[in-house]
């Protein structure tokens, strides 16, 4: 049952990712990318990571893609249509087949050791995924978390300075 669902959503994710590059209007490309993100969220849920799934939809599908569509609207690309065939498609296809090949080689390189880490499916069911992530983020990984937030703050200040008019 779970594996049928996995193959279903994996297929949809791959096809919509393909259509992101193939669709001829930018709006349809953006829609396909949203579909891909939602499929990823479903795959996260299957991996017992519901918090990641919610964040995936909130941040990627709910915020970043809306901003991209906003830019498409402001530049009025809504009706722009790409040329049907370009050489880029061939190059892109070649590179992705190569990537698939390399990934396959790396995945099949070693044997599974059967070692289990601290966080198992059982701990997630007992404590909840959100609690575990929160605890890890604010104790063990506090420094990287703070560094990331300072980075974001710098980006915000930079954006304000760049777009601010002389008063």
């Amino acid at each position: 049952m779970l594996s049928i669902l996995f193959y279903l959503f994996a297929t949809v994710a791959i096809f919509s990712a393909f259509y992101v590059t193939k669709a001829r209007s930018p709006v349809n490309s953006a829609l396909c990318l949203v579909t891909t993100f939602i499929c990823f969220a479903v795959l996260y849920i299957m991996l017992d990571a519901p918090f990641m799934a919610a964040i995936q939809i909130m941040v990627y599908a709910g915020a970043i893609m809306v901003l991209i569509i906003f830019v498409i609207m402001l530049l009025n690309l809504g009706t722009a249509i790409k040329k049907r065939y370009t050489h880029a498609l061939v190059w892109g296809g070649g590179v992705s087949v190569l990537m698939l090949f390399i990934t396959n080689v790396f995945i099949r390189r070693g044997e599974m050791s059967g070692k289990v880490g601290d966080v198992t499916t059982q701990t997630i069911h007992n404590y909840g995924h959100t609690e575990l992530i929160g605890k890890a983020m604010f104790t063990e990984f506090l420094l990287p978390f703070e560094i990331a937030s300072i980075l974001l703050l710098v980006a915000i200040v930079g954006a304000v300075i760049l777009s601010k008019r002389e008063v």
């Binding site: 709006v27 829609l31 949203v34 519901p50 918090f51 799934a53 919610a54 964040i55 939809i57 909130m58 599908a61 709910g62 915020a63 809306v66 569509i69 906003f70 498409i72 609207m73 809504g78 909840g128 995924h129 959100t130």
Partner: peptide
């Protein structure tokens, strides 16, 4: 859901698409 409120916020985030697409399309 263990993440109930986040789920609601995520769905509210998706609600934007309908209006934006209607306007754009």
């Amino acid at each position: 859901l263990n993440i109930g409120v986040l789920f609601i916020l995520a769905m509210a985030g998706l609600g934007v698409y309908g209006i934006v697409l209607a306007g754009l399309a």
